[in-house]
Nucleic acid binder design. Structure first.
Length: 424
RNA sequence: GGCGAGAUCGCAUAGUGGUCUAGUGCAGCCGCCUUGAAAGCGGCCAGGUGUAACAGCCUCCAGGGUUCGAAUCCCUGUCUCGCCGCCA
């Protein structure tokens, strides 16, 4: 949710932001009208309520003679109050519904356009020239099968399409990545958390995942719980309904959890291997900070992501995502796309969003500053999405015989092992 | 899963239909006093909405209900605690 005051004070900015996303401008017009209705209704209800309170005091003090008359009056007024408040409730609900639909206004300097209109900010590392090395690179699934690291067939047998088992080296690699990622984050000053992956509707709503992304979310109707698609949900809701200490900001968390995605509407897309799956594990950054510091914090998260990817020897690009491709909650988003030799393409491995005060308003998280209680900004960013990183490592560090060299930084977490050797 | 008890402005508590505009203690903040500190004394000390600033209004876990009027009575939900059952 954005600051409701903006509806009155800066509706033009909101209209521009809606246009930038390619979303309806009418929503803003509706909101402006709904806000006026709401304010009028509230003022009327308040007046009546004040009258009722006053009359109540008189009833309490009344004598036996004056009491019946006052009671009759009070009864009549109570009717009116009830009616007015009923009306106000309906109007307010309408306003809130509209507010929840309104996305976070995009920063004005975000590149305009849709999915393909991103800006490439940087290209880091160079893809290997396999041709010069004299062999055609295998894709991650073929390598994974040779190494006995990935078992898709049994994943499908047990859980269905887009499920997998990580076996042997695969399981070890994920655990090594997890430990390495956590160790790095700790060194960078983040506070480690293992978070629930089942959450209440309010957590899902507050982080903005029940809007346009709702069809991608698993829901357990018997318990009215949602399976999170990212630990961001739990980390954002962690401080819901709290007033944080402004001096303690920024709060920097790194969370670990499984992530679940229905991937509805992506049938036939990335069906091979573990690139797009219904479940994976992820280490995620989450930062609470002062709104005016959010842009600087966003840059820091991006730098940490880059350092992590670089340390694993993956060639990659840094993109700024265009306005039309931002999620409901993001005002700006940077993605890192790693090189996939078998596809001869860069594919997404990390993503970091500045949600400014969008999530914190919905989740009622604020901070106490020197000049009073005020809003906080939230930011999130991928440190290591396991399946994606496993793909990057297998494909980029493969050898002609199907073996895979283990990046130096991971070796301490694999008992010093330097190469995964094929088992078949 | 069963039974019972509870949820009040940082913490601890009072409050069982109108005087609650929610009291008190502790902690915290400001001032006086003091060489300094403690003690003592005086003041401040929840959030929201709203306003130029006041005022007003809302919030006693949440949502409904009863009533002219609810922190207080009733219903539902959530969470916490205790006991029993089950369990990694």
């Amino acid at each position: 949710m954005i600051d409701p005051r903006l509806i009155r004070t800066d509706s033009d900015m909101l209209r521009r932001a809606q246009k930038a996303r390619g979303e309806s401008v009418e929503l803003v017009d509706e909101l402006v009208a709904a806000d006026e209705d709401r304010r009028r209704a509230i003022a009327y209800s308040e007046t009546l309520r004040a009258q009722q309170k006053e009359l109540g005091r008189e009833v309490a003090k009344a004598t036996a003679e004056t009491r019946p008359g006052l009671l009759a009056q009070a009864k009549e007024l109570a009717e009116k109050v009830k009616e007015a408040e009923g009306g106000t409730a309906v109007i307010e609900e309408r306003f809130n519904e509209l507010m929840l639909m309104l996305p976070n206004p995009v920063f004005e300097d975000v590149p305009q356009g849709g999915e393909d209109d991103f800006t490439v900010l940087e290209i880091i590392g160079a893809p290997r020239n396999f041709e010069a090395e004299g062999f055609t690179p295998r894709d991650h699934l073929e390598l994974g099968e040779m190494l006995g690291a990935i078992d898709m067939e049994r994943g499908a047998k047990v859980s269905g399409s887009r499920f997998y088992f990580l076996t042997g080296y695969g399981a070890l690699l994920e655990m090594a990545l997890t430990q390495y990622a956590m160790a790095q984050a700790l060194e960078w000053g983040f506070f480690p958390m293992i978070v629930p992956s089942l959450v209440r509707p309010s957590a899902m709503e507050g982080t903005g995942f029940l809007g346009q992304a709702a069809q991608d979310v698993y829901h357990l109707p018997a318990d009215d719980l949602y399976l999170v698609g990212t630990s961001e949900v739990a980390l954002a809701a962690y401080h819901s309904d709290e007033i944080l200490d402004g001096d303690a900001l920024p709060l920097k968390y790194v969370g670990y959890s499984p992530c679940f995605r229905r991937e509805a509407g992506s049938y036939g897309k990335d069906t091979r291997g573990i690139f797009r799956v219904h479940w994976f594990d992820k280490v995620e950054f989450f930062v609470y900070c002062r709104p005016e510091e959010s842009e600087a914090e966003h840059q820091k998260i991006l730098e940490f992501e880059k350092a992590f990817i670089s340390s694993l020897g993956i060639p990659y690009q840094v993109l700024e995502v265009a306005s039309g491709d931002l999620g409901l909650s993001a005002a700006r988003k940077y993605d890192c796309y790693g090189w996939v030799p078998s596809q001869q393409k860069y594919r997404e491995i990390t993503s970091t969003s500045n949600c400014t005060t969008f999530q914190s308003r919905r989740l009622n998280t604020r901070a106490r500053y020197d000049d009073g209680v005020g809003p906080v900004a939230t930011l999130n960013g991928t440190l290591c999405a396991m399946t994606r990183m496993i793909i990057m490592i297998l494909e980029n560090h493969q050898n002609d015989d199907g073996s895979v060299n283990i990046p130096g930084v991971l070796r301490p977490y694999l008992g010093g092992l330097e190469v995964f050797e094929p088992i078949v």
